[in-house]
Structures are given as structure tokens and as C-alpha cells.
């Protein structure tokens, strides 16, 4: 009986130790064989408070701030361009 207990403890201990040291063999799939993508600059989400949008969607503010541009290219041009 004692021998049986020792045997059971021995088997359990062996099983426990084996479980602790087990390593999963990596499974090579087509997906994992692809090299990692080169990191790219990902678009950033809009900030919660977006000052750019707040101003550029406010017609009154833009009217007040927009400067009359100089007469552009072609102001003195004559004839068919």
C-alpha cells in the first residue's frame, strides 16, 4: 500500500514538473511566416478638442480673420493663357 502511495506521488510529481516545463512548439503557418510589416505612420484620430476644426468650420470667424489676397498671378495678363 505504501509503495502504491509512493508510486502515485511520484507519478503526480512527474506530471506536475512536466507540465511546468512544457514549451509549446511553434506552429509555422503561412501567416506567421510573413515578416513583420514595416511600421508606418498611422493616421492619428482627431483630438477631443480640435482647434483647427473649430475655427475652420466657423464661417463668421473665418470671415473676420481671412485677409483679402493680393491680386494673384495673371492680374495684368492679357489674351488667351
Amino acid at each position: 500500500m505504501v509503495k502504491l502511495r509512493v508510486l502515485i506521488y511520484f507519478v503526480l510529481a512527474a506530471w506536475f514538473l512536466a507540465a511546468c516545463s512544457a514549451q509549446q512548439t511553434p506552429i509555422v503557418t503561412e501567416e506567421s511566416a510573413v515578416p513583420p510589416a514595416t511600421p508606418t505612420l498611422l493616421p492619428q484620430p482627431s483630438p477631443v478638442v480640435d482647434y483647427c476644426l473649430d475655427c475652420h468650420t466657423d464661417k463668421d470667424k473665418l470671415v473676420a480673420l481671412a485677409k483679402e489676397e493680393d491680386a494673384g498671378h495673371g492680374s495684368e495678363s492679357e489674351g488667351v493663357g
Binding site: 493616421p43 476644426l53 473665418l62 489676397e69
Partner: peptide, 22 residues
């Protein structure tokens, strides 16, 4: 001049480009 830089908030924000920070 103002019209040249006026962003249509609702319409722009509803697009994919509107999801990015200016």
C-alpha cells in the same frame, strides 16, 4: 477668401479623412 478654407464639418467628419487629426 473665407470660403477657400471653410471646412464643412458634418460632411467632412462623416468621411474616412475626417477621422484623422488635421
Amino acid at each position: 477668401p473665407w470660403e477657400k478654407v471653410f471646412v464643412a464639418r458634418q460632411e467632412f467628419l462623416a468621411t474616412a479623412h475626417g477621422q484623422m487629426a488635421c
